[in-house]
Amino acid sequence: MRIDYRIEHPVALSASFEVEGFTVLLGASGEGKSLLLRAIAGLLPARGEPFGGLPPQQRAVGYLPQGHALFPHLNAWQNVAFALRGADRRRQAVAWLERVGLAALAERRPAQLSGGQQQRVALARALARRPQLLLLDEPTSALDPATRDDVLAELIAEVHAAGIPALAASHDPALAAVADRLVVMHGRRIVQAGAPWEVHARPANGAVARLLGHRNVHGGRLVGEPGAQRLFWPEGNVALPVETGLPGDTAVDWHIAPEAIELHEAGGAAAGDADGVVVAATEVRQAGAHGSYLGLRCGQARLWARSPPWSLDMAGTIRLRLPPTAIRCWPRD
């Protein structure tokens, strides 16, 4: 489904993109993602397609705002039945709750449900309206981190099962990672759209890389023409050799994957005088489910690198080499 909307108030915003399956609209807070969803739902004056000009009650959208907005005076099945008409409302509502695995909690009030359960009731209620498009505002914001991945997987499975295109506005890279399609918003406009793996492999600029959760995205300036080019990194106060196709004296955002940074013990002579060596202080060690990383203080900025196999003196310094081919540069707008 093609979305094409223009908002004038409270901020000027225009967006045009394709929604397929579970599409995530990724952007920082304050970009106007929520405004765009509200505009599509007809709750904000705007021009565009689909549903242009219709009042909200005539738009076939299922809108799930942040916090789910269940009616506190109604229990779970009554919330779902709110979207239904006719004598058979109760049976249908319970059937929708069954689809999201909550039939047993049909009599519970929203306050007696967990965040994930509330979200599924809100989803059942939105689906019961038989929408042509689902709109989800920050669906991961109210979820418990421990169960979030599973709740998300269920949400996406249910959206797929319903066969309705869904647009989720989020600033959460974890949600972006599981999308069918990713649309990235920056500076109040769409800057990139595509399959998540495509966007991850080739972020259009440094802002997109940051939004995707990439670490080690910094600002700098290219000095010298391609062939003998260096990247001056003011925060780290170093000039690193790089290989780009960009002309000299270009302001850039640059990135290096933590896995690409080579670490050398302070005393070691390896690559000691080579170009692109940075001396850093070890600041923090992060041991997580997906590997161990080091936060390294370089001047006024921090670089993240994969933890080396040898034991570290956390108080000491360490030498890093940033291979020129691993550094990616984007010209700044």
């Binding site: 007809g42 009650q57 705002p65 009616f71 979207a83």
Partner: peptide
């Protein structure tokens, strides 16, 4: 009364 709940009622197909 949270305004959002009234708006949700609209998006669920109810008149104002």
């Amino acid at each position: 009364v949270p305004r959002e709940l009234e708006q949700i009622a609209l998006t669920l197909g109810h008149s104002p």
